[in-house]
Design a binder for these strands. Structure first.
Lengths: 157, 157
DNA sequence: AAAAAATATGTAGTTAACTACGTAGATAAA
DNA sequence: TTTATCTACGTAGTTAACTACATATTTTTT
């Protein structure tokens, strides 16, 4: 796919997605190899609930950066796995507060060492002259300041 | 989503996907604002065919980095739009050679200036201390050399 | 206090990638 | 030269995100 790579910046989105998918696929395999029944897509929910033990569905969605319907469908899977559970908020009947189950906490404990393995594997992979994590952060900041759309439209004058 | 961002490297895949989606969404909007009926997901196919005017379906898929079924469904849309067409290879009856139509070429001509707008908009967005494009290339190279999975398994001994 | 607006959750349907499988034709091996 | 394998393409079904809409509850406004 040399031509696409050569298109430079025009195909960034494609390349970001490709990389993201490769990493996710490998991630799934790593959990499997370590004998843990866990899908990478669950990570954001579990990780956030580990640090913020009680969150409403929408709050959780905002925290992981997904839409709430996507979050709901993740939660359904995680509830099926008995890793999280939800209960009505006493003071706001609309809200369903989500938290890790005991089993969820146990799984986190089991995954901690694997997460450490990931950190080290990523370190080797990502520690290059133009550090990817920092690059992403920088681009996210630039984007927040002025989106691609705004930048493009600005050139019309 | 501070917690996910703080998780550092563990949520790279999520962050890559998020960024990719933002860019694609803005990209679609830019074409629209410039009055061009074009979806960003079509870009790789059109761009590659512009530089390699005749490719089989599988060759094209390899060139854009997608699976061939994904490519086929893109091609169906593009054929519907009359931007590309395919014809049987004379010497190999299995192959369907894909090329831009006249209309496809006309659209490329119309998009060229918009691509230039993109290049400049991206320049502002992506030119940060840790250049994203270079970071991606570097990580892709590292990954090719040794995948995340291999790196993770290697730590087991 | 009633009406209007906002918020929290949920459902339905869409999209754009994927994997798995099947078939026809070309190439290699027996 | 027949058989086996490989290659190119296509279809069907899955997945994991999305948008749009619906409903219930809370908060704000009049």
């Amino acid at each position: 796919m040399s031509i696409i790579d050569d298109s430079g910046v025009l195909a960034v989105a494609t390349r970001l997605m490709r990389l993201s998918e490769q990493l996710r696929k490998d991630g799934a395999q790593v959990y499997k190899e370590y004998g843990i029944d866990f899908e990478p897509k669950w990570f954001p929910v579990i990780y956030v609930l580990y640090y913020k033990p009680q969150l409403g569905v929408v709050e959780l969605a905002a925290e992981i950066g997904y839409t709430h319907p996507s979050t709901i469908s993740l939660l359904k899977e995680l509830e099926m796995q008995k890793l999280v559970r939800g209960q009505k908020d006493k003071t706001d009947q609309r809200k369903r507060l989500i938290q890790l189950t005991a089993q969820g906490h146990a799984l986190v404990a089991q995954m901690e060492p694997v997460w450490q393995v990931f950190r080290e594997a990523f370190a080797g992979l990502l520690d290059t002259p133009h550090n990817l994590m920092q690059a992403i952060t920088e681009v996210e900041n630039n984007f927040r300041e002025k989106s691609l759309l705004q930048r493009a439209l600005q050139q019309r004058r």
